[in-house]
Write a protein that binds this DNA or RNA. Structure first.
Lengths: 256, 256
DNA sequence: ACCTGAACACCGTTCAAGT
DNA sequence: ACCTGAACACCGTTCAAGT
């Protein structure tokens, strides 16, 4: 009942690069480079990207790596530590993306820099849809995430915001600082726009939602990707917060 | 291996009100009022309140109700439907709390009404700490939650906000509309304020967080419950959003 | 109509044993 | 040092059987 049939192709290519003799199972195991924490975490991230976070089980992850589930415990303390490691990898990716954003060139440039940085983080999250859920399930800090937060705070300090306001800002942004805002009731992939009949029923029970549907769906304005373009909504909320924070700056810290 | 020892006391009192003869197990089961969906959901909410959401398993919930786990499937389709039902109960509690808030008395009163309503919802969430997590895990709409959202939208319409702005507002508020903003890395109960030594180490790795700790912890301003008073931070972020939305109102809709 | 008992297909995790 | 195999204590869920 071995999982050797599922040995990761990339790993094999690496290990077998200068070996062409067909090997029996024992030597295959012996030749295989020993697992390490990094390879375990990378495989977990890939598995979550491809099949969703619920498919990341110790047994299935072991299978991916050509190893029994129990071997993983040599490299991560337990499943919780595995999840911490996945968030760590994700945060490192966020830091890399954030590093390509132009730092603020003047105090009044802080809002642009915050916006670009957070949207860079968002781009990473869109590549790893399991990110938000796993991040919010963590109960203790992950260093790379803290480093990212420290970076955002540095941008705001350049903008002249007081320590107290920076503190409020981090709380007000919350998960938006990392580029996501957990959507309530995200419609399933298969869901279509409501039919007129459904809209009628909806309007009788929920008059305001009904009215909104009529108004917002009627004019699919220029560049919208749909009547609920997530990117548009995200940036709207983000700008609302950043503009509000700007209004709370000390008068002495200049205008913008 | 029966769970009859854990029969809910309240249920027994109800069932036995006019029966005083000691009964054997068979008649006890026969006399017990049959379970129904409402009692199952109420027990699940109580169990989650007392022992946390992770303790709500079909087996344990059955035990609470003096019934085998499999009996629950007569009243809820599966565990997911059970969770939906729990959110439904929670949302009904939110609607009750929101119903005690004064409706807006004038267009300019909409911000006050939104604020009071959302803070009323927040009070309910504080009584049910499992609420945010379970709500965010739901993938389809729960009617009572939609009713609550419709109510919020009604308040904004009284305030003269356009349908388009109301739509943006609901997205911008996100989970804040329900009274919570998922805290990233909520410190464990046992965690104390960082010691000076920890602060020094922190300052060298995270200069901005370190600076903030110095500044914000130094002056425990008047009425704060601590250097990270959740209620203060929640209302700060909420006001930021509501004020920002007010700024987006059509000029024609009056001043406030 | 409602409930039970046994079973199934999964989990995370332990432990002793192998190399 | 790293990996395996068997086992344990849980899950959600099914199914046939009881009343």
């Amino acid at each position: 009942v071995t999982a050797s049939g599922q040995v990761d192709a990339q790993v094999d290519a690496q290990a077998d690069s200068q070996v062409d003799a067909p090997a029996d199972d024992r030597s295959a195991v012996a030749r295989r480079p020993p697992l390490n924490r990094d390879r375990v975490l990378a495989a977990a991230v890939t598995l979550a990207d491809e099949s969703g976070i619920e498919s990341v089980t110790m047994r299935r992850l072991g299978g991916r790596l050509g190893v029994e589930a129990m071997s993983l415990y040599n490299h991560v303390a337990n499943k919780d530590a595995l999840m911490d490691g996945m968030v760590e990898r994700l945060a490192i990716e966020v830091l890399e993306a954030a590093g390509t954003v132009d730092p603020p060139t003047s105090p009044t440039d802080w809002k642009r820099a915050m916006r670009d940085t957070i949207l860079a983080a968002r781009a990473v999250m869109l590549r790893h849809p399991w990110g938000p859920g796993v991040i919010e399930s963590r109960t203790h800090m992950i260093p790379a995430v803290v480093t990212y937060f420290d970076m955002l705070m540095g941008i705001m300090r350049v903008g002249g915001l007081s320590w107290d306001l920076v503190h409020h800002a981090m709380h007000a942004l919350g998960s938006r600082a990392l580029g996501f805002s957990q959507e309530l009731f995200v419609p399933a992939d298969g869901d279509e726009d409501p039919t007129p009949a459904e809209r009628d029923r909806m309007k009788s029970v929920y008059p305001n939602i009904g009215g909104m549907l009529d108004a917002v769906m009627h004019d699919p304005s220029e560049e919208s990707l749909g009547w609920c373009d997530d990117q548009t909504e995200f940036t709207f909320g983000l700008d609302l917060l950043l503009d509000g924070l700007a209004g709370h700056r000390e008068p002495s810290s200049g205008t913008d």
